[in-house]
């Protein structure tokens, strides 16, 4: 197999791995769903020296999941045979919910979290309830259980729910 093909396959395998590692706080979303993996550079495939550079970006500055995510990436890549792994943290361009996959938004809804929607760029009353779809909902707080979420309550089914804020 030639070197270019080896690199291409190794890179594709790494992107696939990012589909399997999930956010520890929103465990239905993979790193690819969140859009936080910005670059994967295989410098040498695992069959050779196994050198790789990965660039990730934080959702919010203080997101406590970032260290866990970086470590998990390292552990999984090591299991794939990489010997030298560098995880870079990029600040720019700043992460935005625009990078979240459509599939990710669907998964959020099924999980009971209202996905980010442009028309609700500022959290407000009326964000549809992910349980009963009612728009008769009330904003309880612009801050929720993690940095990326606001807290609402449905006035029809009574269920409190999180809204993944536009960012």
């Amino acid at each position: 197999m030639n070197a270019t093909l080896l690199h291409t396959e190794a890179t594709a395998a790494c992107w696939k791995l990012m589909d399997q590692i999930c956010d520890p706080e929103v465990p239905v979303l993979s790193l690819n769903d969140l859009g936080i993996v910005r670059a994967i550079a295989v410098k040498s495939p695992p069959s050779e020296a196994g050198i790789i550079d990965i660039t990730i970006t934080a959702t919010y500055s203080g997101c406590p999941a970032m260290d866990w995510i970086a470590n998990t990436i390292k552990i999984e890549l090591r299991a794939m045979g990489y010997q030298s792994i560098t995880v870079n943290h990029a600040i720019s361009p700043a992460w935005t919910t625009d990078w979240m996959s459509e599939q990710g938004k669907e998964k959020l809804k099924e999980y009971g979290i209202a996905p980010p929607e442009k028309r609700f760029s500022i959290p407000t009353d009326g964000i549809p309830c992910p349980q009963c779809k009612s728009e008769h909902t009330r904003l309880l707080s612009e801050f929720g259980s993690t940095s990326c979420k606001a807290l609402l309550q449905c006035q029809d089914c009574g269920e409190p729910f999180d809204y993944f804020k536009c960012h």
């Binding site: 934080a58 919010y60 500055s61 203080g62 997101c63 406590p64 309880l140 707080s141 612009e142 801050f143 929720g144 259980s145 940095s147 807290l151």
Partner: peptide, 17 residues
């Protein structure tokens, strides 16, 4: 509770910055 969570979220942002 909601305001406790709000101020601590803000704190997390500040410490992250």
């Amino acid at each position: 509770l909601e305001q406790d969570i709000a101020i601590t979220n803000i704190t997390l942002d500040l410490i992250g910055q």
